[in-house]
C-alpha cells in the first residue's frame, strides 16, 4: 500500500512551493527592524517630548497618529518602542539559545541520569513562566529592562532544550555519527562538527517562535509596570497608559495594540515559514 502511494504524496515534480508565511513574516520582521533603525536617526518628534498644549490630540497632519495624555507624539513613541521590543526579544532569545542549545545537545548525547537530570530540571523550570519570573526578579532587584530580558530568557530555555534535544537525538542516530563514534571521536568534536550544524535549522525556527513569545511577555510586563521604566517608550506601557481613556480616546489603545499584534504575528509567521522552508514535508503539520 505505502509502496504504491509513495510517489503520490508530496514529491510531485519536486518543485518548491511558494511559501507565503515566510514572505509575509519576513516582510513584517524586516519592517519592524527598519523602523527601529530609522528611529535612531529620525522620528517625527522627540518621543519623550511633553507638550501640555497638545494633549490627547486626534490624528492629524502634524501628529499622524495623534498624541497621548502628556502631548507626546504616538507615532514617535511607537517607533522608539520598537527598539525596546526588538532589544528585549534579541537578548531574551539570545540568553535562551546560549544556555538552551548546549543543554539540549548535552541531553541528546548523554544517556543515563545526566540527561534525565537536565530534562527534569527543564520540566521544573516550566512551572516558572516568564511573567512570574520577571515579577520575582522585579521584587528582588527592582523592575528594569534587564530583569525583564533575563526573566524572559530564562523562561524560554526549556523550549530550546526540548526542541534541540529531540533534534539532536535524531542526529545521534544517523550513520555518520555512528561512524564517527565508531572511529573513536570524542563527544565534544562530534557535538561541534555533526550535531550542532544539523540542528541549526531547528535553532532558527525556535528562535523566531520564541521571539514572538518574548514580544508578548515584554508587552505584558511593561503593561504591568515590570518592564522598561518610563520615560523610555514601550508598547506595553503605552497600552497601560491608554486604559484610562478607553471611553474618550480608544485609539490610544488601538495603535500600540496593533503594533504588538503585528510584531507577534510577524515572528510567528516567520517561524512557520522557516519550518516549511527547512522541511517541506511537514508543511501540513504545524
Amino acid at each position: 500500500m505505502s509502496a504504491d502511494l509513495g510517489p503520490v504524496g508530496h514529491a510531485v515534480g519536486g518543485r518548491r512551493r511558494w511559501n507565503p508565511s515566510l514572505l509575509v513574516g519576513g516582510f513584517i520582521v524586516a519592517l519592524i527592524a527598519v523602523v527601529a533603525l530609522v528611529s535612531f536617526v529620525w522620528t517625527p518628534y522627540d518621543a519623550t517630548l511633553v507638550d501640555p498644549a497638545g494633549r490627547l490630540a486626534s490624528p492629524s497632519w502634524t501628529h499622524w497618529l495623534g498624541t497621548d495624555k502628556f502631548g507626546r507624539d504616538i507615532l514617535s513613541q511607537l517607533m522608539v518602542g520598537s527598539r525596546t521590543t526588538l532589544f528585549v526579544g534579541l537578548v531574551a532569545v539570545g540568553v535562551a539559545a546560549v544556555i538552551g542549545v548546549p543543554l539540549g545537545i548535552f541531553a541528546a548525547m548523554t544517556r543515563r541520569w545526566s540527561s534525565e537530570l537536565v530534562m527534569r530540571a527543564n520540566d521544573l523550570l516550566l512551572a516558572f513562566p516568564a511573567l512570574l519570573l520577571a515579577i520575582m526578579f522585579g521584587a528582588v532587584f527592582g523592575a528594569s529592562t534587564t530583569t525583564a530580558m533575563v526573566a524572559i530568557g530564562i523562561a524560554t530555555i526549556p523550549s530550546f532544550v526540548r526542541v534541540i534535544r529531540s533534534g539532536g537525538m535524531q542526529v545521534m542516530r544517523t550513520e555518520y555519527v555512528l561512524a564517527a563514534r565508531a572511529a573513536g571521536r570524542r563527544p565534544f568534536p562530534i557535538a561541534i562538527r555533526h550535531v550542532l550544524p544539523n540542528v541549526v535549522s531547528l535553532i532558527t525556527v525556535q528562535a523566531s517562535v520564541s521571539f514572538a513569545i518574548a514580544v508578548l511577555a515584554e508587552a505584558a510586563l511593561s503593561f504591568l509596570g515590570y518592564g522598561t521604566p518610563p520615560p523610555t517608550p514601550s508598547w506595553g506601557r503605552m497600552l497601560q497608559e491608554s486604559q484610562e481613556f478607553l471611553f474618550s480616546a480608544p485609539r490610544l489603545a488601538v495603535f500600540p495594540g496593533l503594533a504588538i499584534a503585528v510584531a507577534v504575528l510577524g515572528f510567528n509567521l516567520l517561524g512557520d515559514g522557516l519550518r516549511d522552508h527547512f522541511d517541506p514535508k511537514l508543511e501540513d503539520r504545524r
Binding site: 508587552a219 497600552l239 478607553l246 489603545a253 504588538i260 499584534a261 503585528v262 507577534v264 504575528l265
Partner: peptide, 18 residues
C-alpha cells in the same frame, strides 16, 4: 487563529471592554 495567537490576553481584554 494565527491572528488570535498574536493578540496578548490583556489586549484582548481592552478590545472586549471597548
Amino acid at each position: 487563529s494565527q491572528v488570535g495567537v498574536a493578540v496578548p490576553a490583556f489586549l484582548a481584554g481592552i478590545l472586549l471592554i471597548m
